[in-house]
Simulated scan of single mutants.
Amino acid sequence: MTVKRVLVPIDKSEKTLKSIEQLKLLFRKEEVQVVLLHVIDDFNVAAVDYVSAEFMDAVTTLSNSLLDRAEGLLPGYTVEKISILGSASKEIFNTSSEKNIDLIIMTKTGSGLVDKYILGSVTSKIVKKADIPVMVIP
């Protein structure tokens, strides 16, 4: 199997940056294109009675800063950054399909409260349903 395009989902936890470190150990800069994805959880946004433009601007700014930070750890790599509102697992699947991803690298737990104690629910869904390889970083 030749890996040319790698998807790395990023959340606000420090742990997700381990995925980037693993990617750098596995692939040289000229070997792969990296897609960094941050999903703004639409469930959390929908839980707010009124979503102001200022709120969405702040959330988008945070998302972009997370992606910029992750990109900064990949000097010399070809990187595409995507920030999108939606369900994390759904958007990971959509992005992997739309961007012809060969491999997903993600951590086993994310930033959610439950995720800190068990295999993350998003990671679990991706591993169970993905039709491409998924590398899970502890």
Rank of each mutant, 00 (worst) to 15 (best):
G112E: 08
V59N: 06
Y77Q: 05
F93Y: 11
G76V: 04
D57K: 08
Y50T: 15
L66S: 00
I84F: 03
D57I: 00
K99A: 06
M106S: 11
A88Y: 12
L67C: 00
G110A: 05
G110C: 02
N100H: 08
A58D: 08
A53N: 11
I82V: 12
T107M: 09
K81W: 01
V48F: 07
E80L: 13
S63M: 04
A47R: 04
N94L: 08
L74I: 03
K99Q: 13
S89Q: 12
I84T: 15
G72P: 10
Y50E: 03
T107E: 09
Y77M: 04
S97T: 06
S63E: 04
Y50M: 06
L73K: 13
E71P: 10
S52I: 06
G76Q: 03
S65M: 00
D49G: 12
G110L: 00
E91R: 12
K90G: 03
V59A: 14
F93V: 05
L62Q: 07
S111C: 08
E91I: 00
I101T: 03
L85Q: 10
L66N: 01
K81F: 04
E71C: 07
N64D: 06
E71Q: 10
I105V: 15
K81R: 14
D102L: 04
S65G: 01
T61C: 08
T60C: 00
I105W: 13
N64R: 03
A88W: 05
I105C: 12
S97F: 05
G86V: 13
F93M: 11
M56N: 00
T78Y: 01
Y77V: 07
A58N: 14
L73P: 11
E80C: 05
K81C: 08
Y77C: 10
V59R: 03
A88V: 13
A58K: 08
T61I: 02
D49E: 10
V51E: 03
I101P: 13
S65C: 00
D68M: 00
S65T: 03
L85C: 05
V48W: 02
M56I: 07
K108M: 13
T109Y: 13
S87N: 15
L62W: 02
E80V: 13
T95C: 15
